[in-house]
Design a protein around this nucleic acid. Structure first.
Length: 498
RNA sequence: GCCCCAUUCGUCUAGUGGCCCAGGACGUAGCCCUCUCACGGCUAAAACAGGAGUUCGAGUCUCCUAUGGGGCACCA
């Protein structure tokens, strides 16, 4: 049975890179009919933030990543929160101590800092120098008598090499001189990542570890820890980081698009985001870019993941999300748009959105597109596509109520025909389209409805850019549409000759 | 400073020695469609980091250089 885990340290919102790691980890388990475990690494009491755990769980669920064991769902290998497992870590930390694989280190933080400063000044490699590695019982007793609280450090091998196999990168060999005597138990009694991680992965029977490359350097330490415990090491793979779009370095939480929360709040679809994420560092094959997770699973292999760091192609997400939006039924579309539409037209009737939905779906990259676009100073650079619904904002330019292929007289005549039709009968979008097109065709010399429909659309919506005419009229309702049409005719007739 | 990982169009990628004068996608440009904006269709420009080697043959293997990334915490 394959068992994988995602072990975040919740200190804020989930990073998009973590989401991708979680996704691939989850996919690996699902592909093999295995189990995916959520474990919370909160051993850093200074940074841990309980609200963030809720946020992480909400985000994972939004992504469709369900955990089989972990907080809220339980499981046979719990607890799944590290701060509730400290006894276990203490036990195994002591076991290492008793079996000569670890030792107490009484060096103070100040001494460590001084040591590092000196190493830096002398151009030496940074790291703990092993000064307390061979303390005598008397020396230990002496330090303890002074009331010093020790850390427990691992006794790493001093020479030779450590070899392990990374599922993505292949066999890697590291000189043991690069491995330090890392701290396993802090002086506050909490374990460090290294100890907690190894102990938990072992007792939770994890078979595959997938984590970020930032852990690659510590993998040899972990290999040696497993060796010291006499435990079998899980298979391991180190996923690459996600880089800033511009500039250098990996994406930080402040960069645009770095947090999954942004995608949720901006009205992206989780199916699209998941699809998008799986296209970074992995490819479905056969030149297919758009696919479901279910279709991807049989093809997914850890060894096929690209070990190179990648930038997030954000425009590609807009395109993909747009594709997914086009596939939504009207119900889902309206539900998705509603919260944003209410920011534009607070009292908007969902039925109005229903009328507009089919016309809107091809025009949206994300639901937040119903919001106006503003520049840094707060000026609207692109109005909301729903702005035409607001009567107070409606004030078309009379000069634009005719067309070079349809003069003022012809335009006014056509508007009156439209008024006659709309006033006389009930219509739906199709009959309206048929009637207005026919009027339009009669309004120009060449029998093309285009000039009339375009002018009418501008007049009715008052916007150079808006949803299409017929849907817009349906959304406004007959009373408002007729009222505007009436005013258009007046504006046109009262406008000075050009 | 030391160690490790990586390097194909602007970006995400396909490619595991001949099928590649390198394929797809996004983006960009042009054309078509068209009531605006979109959508959709078609077309175009656009890459094997550089240098040595191995080989009949290298994007694919090896080495060096360069560049990018990660690590060297009582953070994870």
């Amino acid at each position: 049975m394959i068992r994988t885990r995602f072990a975040p340290s919740p200190t804020g919102f989930m990073h998009i890179g973590s989401a991708r790691t979680a996704l691939f980890t989850w996919m690996w388990a699902r592909k093999h009919g295995g189990r995916f475990i959520l474990r919370i690494e909160d051993t850093d009491q200074a940074r841990y933030n309980p609200e963030s755990l809720q946020e992480f769980m909400t985000t994972l669920r939004w992504l469709g990543i369900e955990w089989d064991e972990g907080p809220e769902v339980g499981g046979d290998y719990g607890p799944y929160i590290q701060s509730e497992r400290t006894e276990l870590y203490r036990k195994w930390g002591n076991w290492l101590l008793e079996n000569g694989h670890a030792y107490k280190d009484f060096t103070t933080k100040e001494e460590l800092e001084a040591m590092r400063a000196k190493q830096q000044a002398e151009g030496l490699p940074f790291g703990y120098d092993g000064r307390h590695r061979e303390l005598s019982a008397a020396q230990i007793a002496d330090f303890e008598a002074q009331g010093l609280k020790p850390t427990i450090r691992f006794k790493a091998p001093l020479d030779g090499t450590t070899t392990f196999y990374d599922e993505m990168r292949g066999e890697l060999t590291i000189d043991n001189k690069q491995i330090q005597d890392n701290v396993l138990m802090k002086s506050d009694g909490f374990p460090t990542y290294h100890l907690a991680n190894v102990v938990d992965d072992h007792f939770m029977q994890i078979t595959h570890i997938t984590r970020g490359v930032e852990w690659l350097g510590t993998a040899p330490l972990h290999v040696n820890l497993y060796k010291a415990f006499g435990w079998e090491m899980p298979k391991i793979a180190h996923l690459p980081v996600i880089l800033k779009l511009e500039g250098s370095g990996k994406m930080s939480k402040r960069d645009k698009g770095a947090l999954v929360r942004e995608y949720i709040d901006n009205g992206y679809l989780s199916t699209a985001v998941v699809n998008y994420l799986s296209n970074i560092g992995w490819s479905f094959g056969d030149d297919v870019e758009k696919f479901t997770t279910a279709a991807a699973l049989p093809r997914f292999e850890l060894k096929d993941l690209n070990p190179a760091p990648a930038k997030l192609p954000l425009e590609k997400l807009d395109w993909l999300n747009g594709q997914y939006i086009q596939e939504l039924d009207d119900e889902a579309l309206v539900a998705g748009m509603l919260p944003f539409a209410q920011q534009v037209v607070p009292e908007i009737d969902p039925a109005v959105l229903h009328l507009l939905a089919p016309a809107m779906s091809k025009r949206m990259k994300a639901f937040s597109d119903v919001l106006p676009v503003k520049d840094d100073d707060g000026n609207i650079t692109k109005p909301s596509p729903l702005a035409f619904l607001i009567d107070e904002r409606w004030s078309p330019d009379p000069a634009r109520l005719s067309h070079k292929k349809m003069g003022a007289v012809a335009a006014a005549a056509a508007f009156k025909q439209a008024r006659q039709f709309m006033a006389a009968q009930n219509y739906d979008v199709d009959s309206l389209a048929a009637a207005l097109s026919a009027i339009g065709e009669g309004s120009t010399d060449n029998g093309k409805a285009g000039p009339f429909l375009g002018t009418m659309r501008y007049g009715i919506t008052g916007q150079p850019v808006s949803p299409p005419l017929f849907e817009s009229i349906m959304a406004l309702g007959n009373v408002t549409a007729l009222d505007r049409l009436e005013k258009m005719i007046t504006l046109l007739q009262n406008r000075p000759e050009q």
